[in-house]
Design a protein around this nucleic acid. Structure first.
Length: 564
RNA sequence: CGGGGUGUAGCUCAGCCUGGCAGAGCGCUACGUUCGGGACGUAGAGGCCACAGGUUCAAAUCCUGUCACCCCGACCA
């Protein structure tokens, strides 16, 4: 490709509004341009990289027996109603109507539709196992798109779904997908760590996320430096710091005017946060739920959802708060009726906690679980934090931020049941297929590759994903020997099946070199009178800056060597 | 959804406080000089100052409202 013909404009200055390095470089190198929040246009160069990423993903999925399909992105809303996700996806699902007012949704994911496709062909245990995948556009009405290509409202996902006869067989499919993901991330040179993730309350088993660790990431993971335990914050198990021991003392009501928060109490009463009982109100599947947890801990919504086997957990809204009669700022479970009470294990194990008195400006001293109040459910629902003890080995957990690149998930039978993916087993009995699903965000891979492979001058593409195999900087093209050498290079690279980006613009050498660094193709070939005098073309490696003059005839081999 | 910030040329921004001709740098076009790490000169093109309403002789500038975008938080099958 000749740059004089290429639709590309690099930016000398940093675009405002871009915080992440990948976002800045994507814009500066002209790979993408924004259309609206969470929506980007890909330029020819940006799209070439996307295509190479898709190609690598395709190769690895095919290698584990995946079969590529293509599903509609536009779904009748009934499809989502059938699985119940029209409701649970809430506002994230883009909805629209056709001219006859029939409801549709833009696919946020494809469990339902893939299940429908699979169910048409799967009839016997002989048809299983099967792994289906597609590389397709997803639409999600995210509350806040961010970070360039990190959180988009329209994005490309490789989503794969396995259908098996047994949970053991699913374990095998899951392991295959897991392995494929590891190979994909190795090939695109994005370091990821697998972390335990939550499988939700929908009957799934294991779930792991592939996290690219970066400070600009939006997900938090907890890592044990000693035993290697790694989990996302929602999932992370831990041993909470122990309560202060003590014999139960007499319950005492005190006046606490204006004190509504744990930190107010800590200040005015001179107690530690872990000597207080925090009240948190939720709306769970439409009903009020009161949660009691030690003042130094926070509720993990996902753990709460799992403990209650609930579909939807939200903070309680004002209307429900007023209707429930809860006294925000002085609430506790003592004497509370009319709603489900959930207690974290941290409060049932502690003694003499300060708690609300359910009347404004009053609190109790020395509340004790069992004596003063009871919960409908006692469970571990606390959020793990940095420094908490690893549940495996007791070492203090560390926290890191990262971006979720992929997610593998043992789904079970939720969708096969809802969408009717069943088969006859050897005994002629109808069975539900056991499903797994495996997602991978292609744009996120692109962003992570840049985050992980750049320097002050620009991008440094891994050879496997570079938009071109080599970047030719042609200087003094009007001179006959240069034009001839360039033509010879083009022939040689075309013959070898390698792609070239040729900077044939009539600009100064400095501009061309800067753009070559910014665009980040791994090999730069300078064709110029000076290089020809030295016996060929100048070959420069983007990563190392290593420069040498190679004979024209050897250029292809040198580039090929580096790609291997 | 809560908090903060920003909307002026393709990009980065100044001008706004204190109302009075629409600006700079980069980029773009033409010509000339230059020619291996973002050269220089000359001449140009390019604007609904986010949108709507108001105040005023006069609004990019002041007031009100709306919208968009970015950041933090909440949220995220």
């Amino acid at each position: 490709m000749r740059m004089t013909r290429l639709l590309l404009k690099t930016l000398r200055e940093l675009p405002a509004d871009a915080d992440m390095v990948s976002h800045q470089l994507l814009l500066r190198a002209g790979l993408v341009t924004p259309l609206a929040a969470g929506l980007y246009c890909f330029s020819p160069v940006g799209w070439r990289v996307m295509q190479r990423l898709a190609g690598i993903v395709r190769e690895e999925m095919d290698a584990i027996g995946g079969q590529e399909v293509h599903l509609p992105a536009l779904h009748p809303i009934e499809t989502w109603e059938q699985s119940g996700r029209a409701e649970t996806m809430g506002q994230t699902l883009f909805r629209l109507s056709d001219r006859k007012e029939r409801g549709f949704a833009l696919g946020a994911t494809h469990e339902e539709v893939m299940s429908i496709l699979a169910s048409r062909s799967i009839q016997s245990y002989r048809d299983l196992p099967v792994m289906l995948y597609q590389i397709q556009t997803k639409f999600r009405d995210e509350a806040r798109p961010r970070g360039g290509l990190v959180r988009l409202r329209e994005f490309t996902m490789k989503d794969a779904y396995s259908f098996d006869t047994t949970w053991d067989a699913l374990d095998h499919s899951y392991a295959l997908a897991f392995g494929a993901y590891q190979r994909i991330f190795e090939r695109v040179e994005v370091p990821v760590i697998p972390v335990l993730a939550d499988s939700g309350a929908i009957g799934g088993k294991d779930s792991q996320e592939f996290i690219f660790l970066t400070e600009s990431g939006e997900d938090e993971v907890l890592l044990c430096p000693s035993c290697g335990y790694a989990a996302n914050a929602e999932k992370a198990a831990f041993a909470p710091p122990p309560p202060l021991p003590g014999e139960p003392l007499a319950l005492e009501k005190i006046s606490t005017p204006g004190q509504k928060t744990i930190s107010d109490l800590v200040r005015s009463l001179g107690v530690e946060a872990r000597q207080t009982n925090k009240a948190v109100f939720y709306r769970v599947d439409g009903k009020p739920v009161f949660v009691s947890i030690r003042g130094d801990l926070d509720v993990n919504d996902v753990k709460l959802q799992n403990a209650l086997k609930a579909k939807q957990v939200d903070p309680m809204d004002d209307a429900m708060l007023r209707a429930s009669g809860l006294v925000a700022g002085s609430a506790s479970a003592i004497g509370l009726t009319g709603m489900t009470i959930v207690a974290d294990t941290s409060v049932t194990a502690a003694s003499n906690l300060v708690a609300g008195a359910n009347s404004p400006d009053e609190h109790y001293l020395n509340t004790n679980y069992g004596r003063d109040w009871q919960a409908d459910l006692v469970a571990d629902i606390a959020l793990a934090r940095r420094g908490d003890a690893c549940a495996n080995c007791g070492t203090a957990l560390e926290t890191r931020r990262g971006i979720e690149m992929g997610h593998v998930f043992k789904l079970g039978t939720m969708y096969s049941e809802a969408m009717g993916v069943n088969y006859l087993d050897e005994a002629g009995e109808r069975q539900l297929s056991i499903m797994g699903c495996y997602g991978l965000g292609i744009e996120r891979m692109l962003a992570a590759i840049i985050e992980a492979n750049h320097d002050a001058n620009g991008i440094m593409w891994p050879a496997a994903v570079s938009p071109y195999d080599a970047h030719v900087v042609a200087l003094n093209m009007d001179q006959e020997p240069v034009a001839e050498a360039l033509a010879e290079l083009e022939r040689a690279f075309a013959g070898a099946g390698l792609s070239l980006l040729i900077d044939d613009r009539p600009d100064s050498a400095g501009i061309k070199f800067k753009d070559a660094d910014l665009l980040g193709v791994p090999y730069r070939l300078t064709v110029s009178p000076r290089a020809l005098e030295k016996g060929g073309v100048e070959l420069r490696e983007r990563r190392t800056g290593e420069t040498s003059v190679v004979a024209l005839a050897d250029a292809v081999d040198r580039v090929k060597q580096g790609m291997a």
